[in-house]
Design a protein around this nucleic acid. Structure first.
Lengths: 248, 248
DNA sequence: TAGTGGTCTAGACCACTTA
DNA sequence: AAGTGGTCTAGACCACTAT
């Protein structure tokens, strides 16, 4: 076939073409050349760019669509997917208002401060020695009832802009805020669920008896280049938590 | 192209060919014509059988492989997958012995009896009025320590053979036993996790304080035709439970 | 060596979106 | 009407498995 100066596909030459193409596309996303919400080049363009057949391009795109990194939309194009957190463990609490509809809890930020990190936090965020963090303490409530208590840590080097902004202006969702105010885009996260008993302070915050079962969700959120951006611990009364999975 | 009396692909004619082919293959699995462990027809045979191109066959098989129902093995064939329960919530307990290796807990069956089901159990197993169940109570232990308490219910109509067999001969894993002794093959399951506090009886069984946090896992297991085969409730002390998910 | 799935090509036509 | 992804075809050659 005719190859109009196609870009050489790097990486291991023994790998199948479509996998090497996949790696190239991953790199584009990680580097921010292809950004969430914007369309990537069309299949025909990719065919020309890399000098491979359309079927090979489609197979490479297929794998990334299956992994949830890209979304195809017939007639419009293929886009870098913005993660939604519908599968978050935190969604498996009863989050209903009086009329029975599910709703996003309202946020109240109790504290926001620049700190030296604990060892745990420094390790989670992979901080250099002496690097500082922004710590936030937040409540999430539905109709006056406290659903979660959250501790949030962010590397000060990337999120300094947050210190300048009044907490009142934060809104309910933090991640869009991180993106617009700090240019930091969350691409994925790992959550770990454990169960414990509420101590007296947390019992008061969550309005339960001391010693009542409590669910803890630890979240490590990463950017598209897989660098750690946010470390978060959420606590909630275990009552009303109901998590479901399918096995096959 | 030449079509040597291909089998007509049923279902909705507006659906893409590869999706109709996928439905046909699903039906073969559900009907037990293609059984776990045995190879399905080769791609060339499917091409002939259904009078479609090889690419279409591959796409149909691709979808079922992605969904975890089939497994391809180069040079050998494509097989119906036997589910493994590695993703079960029950695996997220510390199941380690003294030497630190993960191990399958040993089982002790405390009770086995033919019963009339409670309403909950009858509904879960979709039993006809008056149909009976086999109930088993089982402990799962690691090095003398009780990890789980399990209640298991099975429709007597399908699992009657179990009543004839001495509980001592059951072994550690029930599902292979169901398959060999009763011809019932588990294809998938749905698990639901909730958290509560141990009552006095369960506290004694699990060797924890009364009121200590306890994890409950409800499992509904289905056959390849999606009929309910087993209903199970497992209880365990919440300490040592640690469940992790990835979000993207 | 024969038969399997794995990779790759080159094109045709369709369905949908946007302008 | 032009451009996008979606479906489908027909074949070539390769890598791996069993015998």
């Amino acid at each position: 076939m005719k190859t109009n100066a196609p870009i050489t596909l790097g990486y291991d030459e023994r790998l199948p073409l479509y996998q090497r193409l996949r790696e190239e596309m991953l790199a584009k996303i990680a580097a921010g050349e292809w950004t969430p919400g914007a369309p990537i080049p069309t299949e025909a363009e990719l065919t020309r760019l890399y000098g491979v057949a359309i079927g090979t391009v489609r197979k490479a795109v297929d794998t990334l669509v299956n992994e949830g990194l890209l979304i195809r939309s017939q007639g419009r194009g293929t886009f870098v997917r913005r993660p939604n957190f519908d599968s978050s463990l935190a969604r498996f609490f009863r989050q209903v208002n009086a009329t029975g509809g599910r709703e996003i809890p309202t946020s109240r930020i109790l504290a926001k401060a620049l700190q030296s990190p604990s060892r745990t936090v420094a390790a989670a965020l992979e901080l250099e020695h002496g690097e500082q963090v922004i710590h936030m303490e937040r409540l999430r409530m539905v109709e006056g009832r406290t659903l979660f208590h959250e501790d949030i840590w962010l590397p000060a080097s990337r999120f300094g802009a947050l210190l300048e902004i009044d907490s009142e202006r934060f809104g309910e969702l933090l991640y869009p805020f991180y993106e617009t105010q700090c240019g930091q885009c969350i691409a994925s996260a790992k959550e770990t669920l454990t169960v414990g008993a509420a101590d007296s302070a947390m019992a008061k915050v969550l309005s339960v008896e001391e010693g009542a079962p409590m669910v803890m969700i630890e979240r490590m959120a990463l950017g598209y280049d897989r660098s750690p951006l946010e470390y978060r611990i959420s606590r909630a009364a275990a009552e009303g938590f109901r998590y479901q999975i399918d096995i096959s």
